[in-house]
Design a binder for these strands. Structure first.
Lengths: 234, 234
DNA sequence: TAGTGGTCTAGACCACTCA
DNA sequence: GAGTGGTCTAGACCACTAT
């Protein structure tokens, strides 16, 4: 407790010391920790510096802060982790392979019920439906099955025979929010043909919906080749 | 461009306006945006307030900031999303089900090669190996296969017949970092028996390793019942 | 070397919420 | 009502890096 910090006092220093106190149980789970003014006095810095350090820990789920109630170490910390939403080409290249791309199909079609529900659309909407295959060193890497709102600006000039919808949208349709789901599924006949795997093989799938304010931009299902792993750090 | 903000000027206001300018292409991909002092003057606030707004956008991958080079809208934004690492009991209860738990097996065992590699351990280590099943409304929900460093303090007093390793470790071993992997796998005989699904069914798996500084705490594989989805928002 | 973001300070006021 | 975190300010100095 009475261990003074050595060296310069930055918010990183304070954050590290706070982490240590949490890990070493000097600040006990469920208990309140000293308030910002006390810590500022202890560390010999401004309150804003303490605030900067603790705010980030609260965002990570390692502290709980409430006005008047003070700051506590949660009994059941719900840790948060971040991961990067990959641009598929970068993902492939980051694995040391060369990326290539084939459009499989493209058409304006009525939106099926499942997508309609995901995107909260009225019935009888028509979206641009594109399916494509991403390859790593010539081997099937990821199947992209995408529905795009035809109202997206510039869409008519996009050439999805050359640029994948994934990449085009990232560059041309900045968005405000969306949802992501991960799950496992079994390869159907089409996927088994694309990936050269048996029917029923376990495949990793990511479903994503994307919005620009109230406007649904796109819904996509990315189905990865057998054995694919998504990795992140905490 | 010349659209003044109305209402109070907070960092959230500025962040929202910056997001709008990115989305509406007033700040073009690849281009530099005005520097902090200019924006502070434009919005009539302190530079620190602008900094607070833009720093967070940079952390989300929506801006790139470098000293001297200024702030740019990236050509290929790599969006980052956060997800919560669930405490399994909370995950189950959040789905409106009641959680129960069964320990399947517990023993001190030599660490197999795969785990040894993940945790960067010397050969011939022995860890506590616990396997358990989490149930939702009595149905198998998630299989927990965990290796725990016997040096974790307090481990000898943990009773994994009553409390799951998942929950005990969250409460008793604050950690500093780790890695996470998601993938799909096919149900082997054991999993098919536990989940009552055919062998070969596609299962969603999360592998996690956990460290306290240089000390490996635990490696766990969570295998979820068929159909499980992990969800997050962006 | 000069321009830009990164951070700290000391003080102030506000917003929320517990008692 | 009062205690705590949330935020803003105006100014300052520093760290990095493009030129």
């Amino acid at each position: 407790m009475a261990k003074p910090l050595s060296g310069p006092v930055t918010w990183q220093t304070i954050q590290a010391e706070a982490l240590r106190r949490i890990r070493d149980r000097e600040w006990k789970p469920g208990a309140q920790i000293p308030h910002e003014a006390q810590l500022a006095a202890e560390f010999g810095c401004a309150r804003a510096t303490v605030n900067r350090a603790l705010r980030e820990l609260a965002e990570l789920g390692l502290l709980e802060r409430r006005r008047k109630a003070g700051t506590r170490v949660p009994l059941n910390p719900v840790r948060r982790a971040t991961f990067q939403i990959p641009i598929i080409r970068h993902d492939v290249e980051g694995r040391g392979a060369s990326h290539s791309y084939q459009r499989l199909q493209q058409a304006i079609e009525p939106v099926p019920a499942s997508i309609q529900g995901q995107l909260d659309l009225p019935p009888d909407c028509k979206f641009l439906h594109v399916t494509a295959l991403h390859l790593a060193d010539g081997a099937a890497f990821c199947h992209e099955d995408r529905w795009i709102n035809p109202a997206v600006p510039g869409l008519e000039s996009a050439d999805f025979s050359k640029v994948s919808p994934n990449e085009w949208l990232v560059q041309n349709a900045a968005f405000s929010g969306g949802g992501i789901e991960f799950f496992a599924t079994e390869a159907d006949a089409a996927m088994s043909a694309l990936f050269g795997c048996p029917q029923g093989a376990a495949l990793f799938v990511m479903d994503r919906t994307t919005w620009a304010g109230p406007l649904a931009i796109t819904a996509v299902r990315l189905t990865y080749a057998p054995g694919h792993r998504m990795t992140t750090a905490i």
